[in-house]
Write a protein that binds this DNA or RNA. Structure first.
Lengths: 242, 242
DNA sequence: CCGTCGCTTCGACCGCCGCCGAAGAGTCCC
DNA sequence: GGGACTCTTCGGCGGCGGTCGAAGCGACGG
């Protein structure tokens, strides 16, 4: 009766969403937004599930193409498969409703405040500091928004002056080099894309920023504070957490 | 023991993904990407479910903020809540795996081919034609990609020449005006954002494009073919479906 | 005013999936 | 080689959620 020999292709939106539609898997992905490679046990502990449960979730995420894995000895390391995947998850997280999560200790409160101030967003900086930097780059005339977010000639010069290569090997011609990323703590956009990643890399190499342990938290150093004051005219209130 | 009086907020990624993690709800959202308002019955028929099932799904999507509803008489019209939501769904659909869906009739085959050629993507054009237009605008020097997708001065002039206002009331300063959108039929980017919407609106008003019935399909008219040949140097193979 | 139509509510069913613990395979180190 | 550790497979449990049909409500139109 029917003719099952002819098929057409449609995007399977539900299949992709199902991968993120579980609290445990979502927690995995949000943790992996720090850009690091995690072991299965680390992720299991983070999400509070048994190792066997974590294994099954990781299988699904890898099979779905969201995660890439690397076996090393008895460890299984996983990371986000692709900057593009990270971008997709960021975009979703920014539009997701907020969930109240009970805070157990005073250090957790502090860490949450630090997270809102400055954190890693895969390969660039996020948080109120990142929004402030983006705003300052705009008022300084380094970024223009008239026809999409772009680096101006002055901005390109500013990057060169800092010793940041503004063209770090373009894989795809059409991959946007300057991109913006919605912040889930702030309402505002911060700089992402290739330029965002370059600026972040430079800030870490110049010791303006240091990563804290194995978290997404980033701490602003005294020299970093001074540099941002000097080079972008950032005010003190933008340079301190909460 | 515990202190349930202190809470922090986290993005509830899983809650948002759950809304799209059902095949029926996903079908609703993909259909609504045409930018129209649909009634509950139309959507139920499209997805092949009972009216009562559609009701329950629509409740969830509205409560989750993805859809906006409007009651008119005995009808319930729903649409995507926001261009931002449309952008999010597009982004997801472009990265979702392809699903083979059996095609029943010859007209369905034809419609699928037309869909791949030119279709509505909420407020702008998608499909191979849209990709070809974007590429042509690039080679003509109307779009530049060095520091993020931007309209060049020449591009702004080209739009003015066509009678397209290039600054149609900016709601948010930071909302990108030129944006790109991954195509799920082509591998390639097409023009979106405010400029993409303006261009599409103009093309419809100038009768270059006409919408087909109540589908996402858009047909290129003979005058539209001529205009694109003339104004963008598009070749015939880019101007025909399949 | 009564039939039709669009939508909703409710109850019941059923299947999927996330969870764990136990057992086992592979790796590393003493 | 033996013990500790990481990850995996499997079986079984439990609950969430998508589905429908029946019944009801409100709007529209003859």
């Amino acid at each position: 009766m029917t003719s099952p020999d002819v098929y057409a292709e449609e995007p399977d939106l539900a299949a992709l969403a199902t991968l993120l539609a579980d609290r445990t898997r979502a927690a995995f992905c949000l943790a992996l937004l720090d850009g690091r490679a995690w072991t299965a046990t680390e992720l299991a502990r983070l999400a509070g599930v048994a190792p066997s449960t974590a294994t099954s979730h990781l299988h699904k995420l890898v099979a779905g193409g969201l995660l890439a894995e690397e076996r090393k000895g008895r460890h299984r390391y996983v990371r986000l498969a692709d900057p593009d995947i990270a971008e997709m998850i960021e975009g979703l997280a920014a539009r997701a409703p907020q969930r109240a999560v009970p805070v157990r200790s005073l250090t957790a409160v502090r860490r949450h405040r630090d997270l809102a101030f400055a954190r890693i967003c895969y390969d660039h900086l996020a948080g109120s500091l990142a929004v402030a930097i983006t705003d300052a780059m705009t008022t300084e005339g380094y970024l223009a928004w008239d026809y999409g977010p772009t680096l101006t000639a002055a901005g390109a010069g500013w990057l060169r002056e800092l010793g940041i290569a503004d063209e770090p090997s373009e894989p795809s011609v059409y991959r946007p080099h300057v991109r913006t990323c919605l912040d889930w703590t702030e309402q505002g956009l911060h700089l992402a894309g290739g330029v965002g990643a370059s600026v972040f890399r430079h800030a870490v190499e110049a010791s303006w920023l240091v990563r804290v342990d194995d978290t997404r938290v980033v701490r602003l150093t005294e020299s970093g504070r001074e540099a941002l004051r000097l080079r972008l005219g950032l005010l003190d209130e933008a340079l301190t957490a909460g």
